[in-house]
Design a protein around this nucleic acid. Structure first.
Lengths: 190, 190
DNA sequence: TGCTTTCTTGAGCGGTCACTCAAGTATATA
DNA sequence: TATATACTTGAGTGACCGCTCAAGAAAGCA
């Protein structure tokens, strides 16, 4: 009986993610979103409820995609090779709206205000870290790295390096690929 | 003939730096600044000109203090020990308004808008990186690390690690001291 | 075709933003 | 003490913020 929306909700979330990722939470206004989504305020609020609610959806998609890419890479290359290539992949995609990680950007922007989205970002980062740990564990099982090392510790350091790499990649005039290579090399020495 | 300001300009910049460091650029409103500085809008604009101008001053002080601490540490401990201790020092100060680096926070927040303050932040980061490189060079001259390595490359990687560490330290439930220790350890292996 | 139900539109809400300025106040010099 | 010269005050500026809602348009069902 009713009328269907004339947009693809999933694609709208993608476009929002790109905008939020690049410009951040405060840096993205409703007007910006309306322009990119081609939506008037009424439709926007009917569809998503609020700017924060959409940001949450965008961040979830961002995190899910990242995890998915890591899993696919691990299936194709095995755990250690996946971990080695992941940093380079994260920074070499020219189409991405930003080099830096959307989760860390959100965390840094909103943590001081105790904004719920900061906690959300931290949660996604924890999930990613867990999967890094799993891969390190698998690599140990395969005898690819020293099995005396603690996978959790390795994962935490790895994620920290990755976040640093991606902040550096955001800078102008910095050759981040060299850093990515070094991160990969240091994994080979474990 | 005139009247003197009844405030210590330097201390006002310190307080602004702490607020900006913690809350970021968009996250700090004029009202916030007026409250912390105990100034009415008129005085504020007479003293500093604009929010951005004060942010610039705050960031300059932030960068100068960081560089100063590094130099003092290097004088006291020598280059390599200073580089080893610097990461831990950066995250263990409980009085600091934030663990993450103000320069990287500013860069991530404002880079997408081509805001002049983002370029300014990048410049301060470059200056810091140069000094890291100097210390690596000195360490080579002292025979403390392999002299075949490129000090510039070492410095870039070191700064990247440091930025990652400080993002991680900002997170809740992450033991950043372990990461700091590992950064120090990996310098010992050069 | 007519009715119901949803989606779309866009003017406009109260609030906050960075900032201004005219008036008042304090102080160093003449 | 009188005057010139800042500094301080705070109400008020226009612009933008996230968001609301009443009215109109479109599509599925009878």
């Amino acid at each position: 009986m009713p009328r269907k929306p004339n947009y693809d909700r999933n694609e709208l979330i993608d476009r929002s993610r790109d905008l939020f990722w690049r410009r951040g939470w405060a840096g993205t206004s409703l007007k910006d979103l309306e322009a990119v989504l081609q939506m008037k305020p009424g439709s926007f609020y009917a569809a998503f409820g609020s700017k924060d609610a959409l940001f949450k959806l965008a961040m979830e998609k961002y995190a899910m995609d990242g995890l998915e890419r890591l899993k696919q890479m691990a299936e194709k290359l095995g755990p250690i090779k996946a971990l080695q290539r992941f940093p380079m992949m994260a920074i070499e995609n020219e189409d991405a709206p930003a080099k830096a990680c959307m989760l860390s950007k959100t965390l840094l922007e909103l943590q001081a205000h105790n904004h719920p989205l900061a906690k959300e970002a931290n949660l996604h980062l924890l999930r990613m870290e867990s999967h890094f740990a799993e891969l390190f564990e698998q690599a140990q099982a395969f005898g690819e790295i020293d099995s005396d090392l603690d996978p959790q510790v390795l994962a935490r350091r790895y994620q920290s390096d990755l976040l640093g790499l991606r902040v550096s990649a955001e800078r102008e005039g910095i050759d981040a690929t060299a850093i990515a290579t070094e991160i990969a090399d240091s994994l080979a020495r474990l």
